[in-house]
């Protein structure tokens, strides 16, 4: 059978495909941020971590020829940035939001510096799973090309729910996030728990970055990330610190980001930049709807500075 044109139906299809494709980095970064915030600290520096992850993952894949090794190195780079954040924040009088801003600028700058030689060469990218083999429509086949990392992320969300709810580790993290004094009284080191939570968060954010450079769009450039990291931080607030909500919200944001290119493909070019900024409009709008000046946000860890 020949390829069938599906015209305007291509728009919702492309948005759904984009939700999965462009939503994956949001998913990883927001789950990482969620873990960090559950321990009572906010890491705004994940934007920088994301870019560093993208650069180091791409560089590793280029040098070794293995994109999966790139993903691993991106995660390790991310956890190093997480360790830096946690280490600085554990010093007295040092503010976690300010450190996050600093690491956002530092990570971006360092990635641009080290990534200069990587702009030209093409690294091997992550393979996709072709789940659309049954369809004769090219657009459907295209939309069902799904990356393994998305599936990992989709499984990670319920895993984190379980981890936080039912394991000893999860309970310690939540206790540190809700009352550092109680955790201290029980003999747990607040700084160590936060260090591990922030490093794990950085690991996930680094992987989110490697998805950008190794799968979609699948190359390294200085304009690769335009605020996905910071959007993911806002997304955690919107998701009310629930991992499953992070998953749904990531799909929503990915879909919103795919709207511009999808409309362009059916010939609507005006407002391209505005449609591209749709995730930011959406984040801001949702934050306005869900925040309140009267009371704290439900579900927020009590130690979190940003909601106090």
């Amino acid at each position: 059978m020949a390829d069938v044109g599906i015209g305007w139906w291509g728009v919702p299809l492309a948005v759904a495909a984009g939700a999965v494709r462009a939503g994956t980095p949001f998913l990883f970064v927001s789950l990482g941020e969620l873990l960090t915030e559950k321990s009572g600290r906010i890491n705004l520096g994940l934007e920088g971590t994301l870019v560093m992850g993208a650069m180091s993952g791409y560089g590793t894949a280029y040098l070794t020829g293995s994109p999966w090794l790139g993903v691993l190195v991106a995660g390790i780079t991310g956890s190093l940035f997480g360790a830096l954040h946690a280490g600085l924040c554990s010093l007295p009088r040092v503010n976690d939001i300010a450190v996050g801003i600093a690491l956002m600028l530092f990570g971006t700058g360092l990635a641009f510096y080290l990534g200069k030689p990587l702009i030209q060469p093409q690294a091997p990218t992550l393979p996709a799973l072709h789940l659309g083999w049954w369809s004769s429509i090219a657009a459907v086949r295209d939309a069902l090309k799904i990356n393994g990392l998305f599936i990992v992320g989709a499984l990670l969300a319920p895993a984190i729910v379980w981890l936080l709810r039912s394991t000893r580790w999860g309970m310690i993290v939540r206790m540190v996030g809700d009352s550092a004094d109680a955790a201290r009284a029980m003999g747990y080191s607040v700084d160590w728990v936060r260090l591990l939570a922030t490093m794990t968060g950085g690991f996930l954010a680094g992987i989110g970055g490697s998805f950008l450079s190794l799968y979609y769009p699948g190359s390294w450039s200085e304009g690769l990330s335009s605020g996905q990291g910071i959007t993911a931080v806002a997304l955690v607030i919107f998701a009310r610190w629930s991992p499953m909500n992070c998953f749904y919200a990531s799909l929503l944001f990915g879909g919103a980001g795919a709207l511009g290119p999808a409309l362009q493909s059916v010939g609507i070019h005006s407002g391209y930049y505005l449609f591209n900024a749709a995730p930011y409009f959406l984040t801001l709008f949702i934050m306005v709807l869900t925040s309140s000046s009267e009371h704290r946000l439900s579900g927020a860890p009590s130690e979190l500075s940003i909601t106090r």
């Binding site: 705004l44 939001i97 801003i101 335009s226 605020g227 910071i230 959007t231 931080v233 806002a234 607030i237 407002g271 391209y272 930049y273 505005l274 591209n276 900024a277 930011y280 409009f281 984040t283 801001l284 934050m287 306005v288 925040s291 309140s292 000046s293 009267e294 940003i306 909601t307």
Partner: peptide
């Protein structure tokens, strides 16, 4: 205003507004 009347964190909202502002500029 969002901070005062809606409790929206100003650090995140101003950064989001930056991306929106750049999109408006390009548009």
């Amino acid at each position: 205003a969002l901070r005062h009347w809606r409790g929206v964190n100003e650090t995140i909202s101003t950064l989001l507004l930056t991306y929106i502002g750049i999109a408006v500029l390009n548009h």
